[in-house]
């Protein structure tokens, strides 16, 4: 049982305290019913997707988009909607496989 792996009261730090950012280990990627696909060749690296992502799932390195964190992306589609590239967007949504 997974219950047994959890720490007991003697092992837990006291006072309901947590080190920062542990949610990175919690994957929400399996929430997706729709899946974003990034098309790097169309991307203008405006980062509108990044700044509007509720799940911090647009990966940006040195000011350029480099991919999507599929472990955490919930597939909301805001990134695709906010992508300004025309006529074909640099992020498109499709059914989750």
């Amino acid at each position: 049982m997974s219950q047994q792996k959890k720490p007991g009261w003697k092992e837990l730090a006291i006072g309901d305290i947590l080190p920062a950012g542990t949610a990175e280990k919690f994957e929400t990627g399996d929430w997706r019913s729709e899946r974003p696909t990034w098309h790097p060749e169309r991307c203008i690296h405006c980062l509108f997707c990044w700044v509007n992502c509720p799940d911090t799932s647009i990966i940006v390195e040195n000011g350029k988009m480099t991919g999507i964190d599929m472990k955490h992306c919930k597939g909301c589609g805001i990134c695709a909607k906010e992508c300004p590239v025309k006529p074909d967007k640099a992020i498109t949504m499709g059914p989750e496989r």
Binding site: G21, A23, E24, K25, F26, E27, T28, W31, R32, C46, L47, F48, W50, V51, N52, C53, P54, D55, T56, S57, V60, N62, G63, D69, K71, H72, C73, K74, G75, C76, G77, I78
Partner: peptide, 29 residues
Amino acid sequence: LKELSTRPEPLTGGHRMCPGCGAPIIVRQ
């Protein structure tokens, strides 16, 4: 935005807000 993207990220993914929730977007911005 380029400069913003180099700042330390205040909020990670892996939280349990609904897909498309506006609150974490506001928090990050």
